[in-house]
Design a protein around this nucleic acid. Structure first.
Lengths: 337, 337
DNA sequence: GTGAAAGCGCTAACAG
DNA sequence: CTGTTAGCGCTTTCAC
């Protein structure tokens, strides 16, 4: 049925070992170029397709990379996966994708599945701060790169947006507009982005000389619109309402917009709002949402590159790459009344 | 380093062959349950993880399915992939994802890569109507299912939304609102969805007793907002303007909204607009867009199921599954002035 | 019920 | 430069 190396060898009148060398770019020089030609021609003629699995069994390389995602329908991830997949495919690697549905038990099952397939490396985008599974995998010496998150201790390589700078640029924008009371609708604190942005918010407030009391924070328990609604209600019902709000992500910001409307407040004239991520269609909201844009596709591509590097030479130091974020100013921010 | 079947066998004091039988659910009955227990215990203790690649080499099954996408960042696909991945993972299959960037040359390269990995089956979401690559793969007897498209000749199984019914429900809605002149901003005609919806539009017009002249069509050359703008300009600058427009997809509809605004026309009071797909955030547009919703995740899941079926018993008839679409009525449609 | 042996398709060491 | 041999980790006859 399928044509194997033996078939090609037979057709080219050489030994399978020789055919292998001829077919393999790296070892071709060990073969007389005339015979190499013959083998190549035979392979072409027979439509030979090397069996990657068999090769992998022998070389102990699967040329496959596992990508672990919490939820592919979260618009944050498709561009990341795309960037990674393109970089990986260009290097001859296939992308093994799994969606954990934000469930650690599922994640464990899927991770086992990936390990059973001997993936050469892992891109991990499930960003819980406590993550025994990832720590275990790292301890087992599996090459991996964390995507869109960062560990507190620098043991495993990571690629993410520079959220500290991103949040700072948001605050700077608001301060320069004249805001002096800026709230934060923080994302879930068990996720590294939620925690990181919260810390960055606190730091930025200090840096721009805002009193701690003028930097109120409420916590959303998910990166979702309803969670944003809940957090925003709490924030906006305080006696001294902030004139501007930085949300943990775009969905929380959208929930905030809802609450503003429901309270009869106008955005941006009463309260300015800034999101995070720049998901699609934000420019078409009412008002168009100012946000901090993450270079998602680039994050994916760079993570893939880093991973390939650490597959090629394991045991290197754990690099971390923080890609610059860009503040996209639209119409949800303005000077305070 | 990694623990193999031999290690387990040695630890359990049995022959590797016996260990294999004990570990394998299906052949376990061929082994005394006492020894089976011993083997299982040893495997557990040593943390044995079977090597799927080695098994696949032997059994000629990779337990992997290739998913071929034109562009993962198109919001249509993530839910489909997610649905497929979950169904596949539940059956022990891994999802091999590739993104062709809408480029047939890239697609060919990636398809070769997938075949080299001996994927057991393929889910194809690149929906060109002329598709020699797919025809070749089908002719080669590779199990596959077309996703979100349908072939003109019924040779290969497919799962898609019931677009004929979907378009009909859109037209019916418009007609019941009192529209008698309804335009179509068709998607690219080399894509099966573009062509299919166009045909469905024509058929629905006839069915609801609209004269052909009252069903003007212009063609967008991509499923994008700019292409929608261009097509809408053409449509709306005609002498007898339609009072309602059915777009080939949501992005084209959004482009249409832009043109309406630019021409000083109001939606829906001057012109009603209906999209297709129900991408995220449509409810927050101005006006919130009425659209035909595709059960995307279900399409993915059903496609996976069909594929697994045809992997399990190849050579069966090519089923086609058309899942019902749902008209989501929002505020971009109303009675004509 | 268990062991022995062969082999999936490939590559890598080593001889010649 | 080419052929031989062995073996990656697993499953599957076939003997015993």
């Amino acid at each position: 049925m399928t044509v194997t190396l033996r078939d090609v060898a037979r057709a080219a009148q050489v030994h399978p070992g020789t055919a292998s060398k001829a077919l393999n770019e790296a070892t071709r020089s060990q073969v007389a170029s005339a015979t190499a030609q013959r083998v190549l021609a035979a392979a072409e003629r027979l439509g030979y397709q090397p069996n990657t699995l068999a090769r992998g069994l022998r070389t102990r390389r699967s040329y496959a990379v596992g990508v672990v995602l919490p939820d592919l329908t979260n618009p944050l991830f498709p561009p990341i996966v795309r960037g990674a997949e393109q970089a990986l495919a260009a290097a001859g690697y296939i992308t093994l994708i799994v969606d954990t549905d934000n469930d650690p038990a599922v994640e464990e099952r899927l991770m086992t599945m990936l390990r059973a397939r001997r993936a050469d490396g892992y891109l991990i985008a499930t960003a819980r701060r406590e993550h025994p599974l990832v720590e275990q995998a790292a301890a087992d010496g599996l090459p991996m790169v964390l995507v869109n998150r960062v560990t507190e201790v620098a043991l495993v390589p990571a690629v993410a947006g520079d959220e500290v700078a991103g949040v700072a640029s948001a605050i700077e924008h608001l301060v320069s507009l004249g805001h002096r009371r800026i709230g934060h609708l923080a994302g879930p604190q068990d996720l590294s982005t939620g925690f990181g942005r919260y810390q960055a918010f606190l730091a930025a407030g200090r840096r721009f000389g805002l009193a701690a009391a003028d930097c109120p924070v409420t916590f959303a328990d998910a990166y979702s619109e309803p969670a944003g609604v809940q957090a925003a209600r709490q924030m906006l019902s305080q006696p001294a309402r902030p004139t501007a709000i930085v949300a943990g992500n775009d969905l929380i910001a959208i929930g905030c917009l809802d609450v503003l409307a429901e309270m009869g407040l106008r955005c941006p004239s009463d309260v300015s709002v800034i999101g995070f991520n720049d998901m699609p269609m934000l420019a078409r909201l009412d008002p168009p949402l100012t946000t901090v844009q993450l270079p998602q596709q680039e994050i994916g591509a760079e993570a893939a590159r880093l991973l390939l590097e650490s597959i090629a030479s394991p045991g290197g130091p754990a690099k971390r790459l923080l890609l610059p974020c860009r503040l996209v100013i639209r119409a949800s921010t303005a000077a305070p009344a």
